[in-house]
Nucleic acid binder design. Sequence first.
DNA 1: AACAACATGTAACCGGTTACATGATTGA
DNA 2: TCAATCATGTAACCGGTTACATGTTGTT
Lengths: 181, 181
Amino acid sequence: MDLSPTARVILGMLRIEPLCGYEIKSLVDESTRFFWNAGYGSIYPELKRLATEGLIEGTPDPAGDRRRIVFRLTGAGQAALDQWLGSEPEPLEMRDEALLQTFFATGPEQASASLRTKAEGHARVAERLRELEAKAEEMASPYPLSTLRYGLDLHEYARRWCEREADRIDQGAHGTRAEKS
Amino acid sequence: MDLSPTARVILGMLRIEPLCGYEIKSLVDESTRFFWNAGYGSIYPELKRLATEGLIEGTPDPAGDRRRIVFRLTGAGQAALDQWLGSEPEPLEMRDEALLQTFFATGPEQASASLRTKAEGHARVAERLRELEAKAEEMASPYPLSTLRYGLDLHEYARRWCEREADRIDQGAHGTRAEKS
DNA sequence: AACAACATGTAACCGGTTACATGATTGA
DNA sequence: TCAATCATGTAACCGGTTACATGTTGTT
């Protein structure tokens, strides 16, 4: 009775409001995307599966000739969502390629460059998150805004950390071989 | 000529020193694991592939009757590694289930609880990273230590952030419905 | 007329996790 | 002798990404 990763975000979104697949994807893109992504290729098949299992229910709601299926939580779906919300979360996983490049850097120039590239990445994410703040403030629940501010603060912190470390390396800190030459 | 995710960490490790698959896995576990993981099920098949492609070369080096194959970078492997190190990294991806639970929390108790759970997770990682510091300090390159300190600082920051936010929620901050009742 | 946005879906591919299978060596 | 560690590998499974396919509606 464990929910798949995509099922978790779908059920959560549907508790806020009944939605079609397209709207779920849009909502994810402007809220959880930076710590929990989901694409159409996961969402639509999962919607079918969840409907088959009776956790959600889809009702056709076409706008003119454009077909559209709105899904809403069933009682079983609400129960499954509540159960998941109270369960122990999986440990945080991440893939940070820029950091791996720093790890394997062969000299101060490479290390510093990878850190600055990483800093720019964090800056871009932080900027995007700032643009989403207004939307988060409008939501009925205050917790999406909490998670957004978390992302904002964390990415800002990471950006500053990387820049400071790159500065230190550029100033010739560390007992590197490059210093000896 | 793009390197697979596991190939990136394998080639990087082999530049430090020729290693067998088992040793690569051990090294990953005590260094890059928290931002770039790799399991046996990825490492061994990838070692074969890389050898076939000529980026690494394996030579049997049994200890008694226990078979053991040590791999080292070829010239082509070094070139591929250097090329990757100078390439644009993929944007950081993460899956933070605790944060998703906060996002979907239905009340202050649930939100606060998920944040404290998340804080504990960060504390555990930070603790583990602290244990690895001595090893990182012994390495020839200073950059693995940089990435370790990055992880340490970031997880500590995240831990404090979550605890503070949980405190604020417990004190009845936010204009939540719970306050009205 | 054309393009962006709305809307749904499938299929191929890629690659990571887990479980399984096997066996040697070392230290308690 | 027993457990932990060293060491290599495969197969099944799971699930995410990308590309493809199709058609409507609203805007310029």
